[in-house]
Structure formats: structure tokens, C-alpha cells
Design a protein around this nucleic acid. Structure first.
Lengths: 103, 103
DNA sequence: CGTCTGCGTAAGCCATGGCTTACATGTTAG
DNA sequence: CTAACATGTAAGCCATGGCTTACGCAGACG
């Protein structure tokens, strides 16, 4: 159920903003918080959620921690979307078949 | 910002369950609620959110309303994901270039 | 070895939102 | 025309979670 965590993580606007900053380039917690209207601990908490969803990962560098994008999260979401899409297509085809049979 | 509504809509587990039922085949509100552990009004409210996110659409049939999948919502989400992916790739390439330059 | 910086964590506050019950609307059947 | 069913909506309750302030901890630097 990794895609569920990804959806939950990306649903929050602030957390999405954090994620998009990290997407542009690896950044430290302080740097990310500097460009957002929330406090540094808030960003830290959001990064924790994003990390749990495999959307980002931390790279300890001395006393700072650089956060960078990790593909796994978005991949899980994409795979779930593909599955849903497949089910919807099959259902659509079945619906068409049912109607033509009825005619 | 359509993708934001899609993410918010799909983040809730119950609402995702409603959506997946509708993906399998068009269904009425009562039918959907019968297969879920929530009341019928709850399902109705969830369908309202899903409809606002262009994930489903209603087909009035007499006194019932059949809900079916609509591709727009998932497409908006996919396009946003593609954009994010593109940004992440560019950032990764830039990072590589920066490091090789430094060496 | 003390100090300062960068982060994570805990506790608490408060808004958002999901759920239920009760009610209103509209459509079909008799 | 009345009865009954399918649905949307309103009001209210309560849990989840996002934010802040305060604190604890590890790594660099004189």
C-alpha cells in the first residue's frame, strides 16, 4: 500500500511545496524552510512524511542533511494509476459489450 | 491546480474505495454504499468531491444517478507527475554537471 | 573542551474534514 | 394524485493532523 502513503504525503499543499523544492535541487532543511512561510520544524516533519513515502531521501553531510528526490514514491503512484486505468478500461469495454448484446 | 484537488480527493481511503468501485463499473450511490462500511450520505459526499476533481461524473437515469469514471482527473495528476519528473531529471543532470565541473 | 550551528522530537493548540442523523427534493409507480 | 424510493443537503460531533514553541543531541571550530 505504498501508493496510499504517497497520496497522503502529496495531498498537503505545504508538503507538496517542500517536495517540489527538493525536486529542483537537493537542499537542507534550513534552506527549504527559508523559502516557505512555515517554521523549520514544520519542514522537518514534512520531510519525515515524504521520506516514509519514499519520495525523498536524506544525505547526511557533516552537520547538515541534504534531502534529494527518490523515484520510488512517484513510481508506486504511477503503477497504481496504471492499474486503475486498466480496470477502468476493462469495465468500459465490458459495458460496451453488454449494451451491444442488449441491442 | 486541478491536480491538487485530485490528490486531495484520492488521499482519503474511503473515498479511494468509492472511486475504485466506480472504476470497476458504473454504480448508483446506494449500491456503492452497500459494499462499504459507511452510510449512504457519506458516499454521496465523497462522490461530490470526486466529481469536483473530475474523477467521476454522474449520469442521471430516472430517479437514480449512475456514477462513472472520468479520465480528466487522473490525466491531470499524470501530467503533474510528468512535470515533476522532468524537473527532477533536469536537476539531477545539472547536479552531475556541477560535480564533474568541480573535479 | 566549550560553543555554536543544524536537525530532530515532544507537547500542546486549533482548524480541517469525515461521519452520522435528520430533513428536503424530485421522480416513478399505482 | 398519493405513496414510496433514490438522492442531495444541513447541522453537529469528534478524530486526525499540521503548526508553533521549547528542548535535546550531534558535528564543526576556535
Amino acid at each position: 500500500m505504498a501508493y496510499a502513503d504517497v497520496l497522503t504525503a502529496l495531498a498537503d499543499p505545504t508538503r507538496r511545496a517542500v517536495f517540489e523544492v527538493v525536486c529542483r535541487h537537493p537542499a537542507s532543511v534550513t534552506d527549504i524552510a527559508a523559502g516557505l512561510p512555515v517554521s523549520r520544524p514544520a519542514v522537518s516533519q514534512h520531510l519525515k512524511v515524504l521520506e516514509a513515502a519514499n519520495l525523498v531521501h536524506a544525505i547526511p553531510q557533516g552537520r547538515t542533511r541534504l534531502y534529494a528526490v527518490q523515484p520510488d514514491g512517484l513510481n508506486a503512484l504511477r503503477e497504481w494509476m496504471d492499474g486503475v486505468w486498466d480496470v477502468a478500461l476493462k469495465a468500459y469495454a465490458a459495458e460496451i459489450a453488454r449494451r451491444t448484446k442488449k441491442d
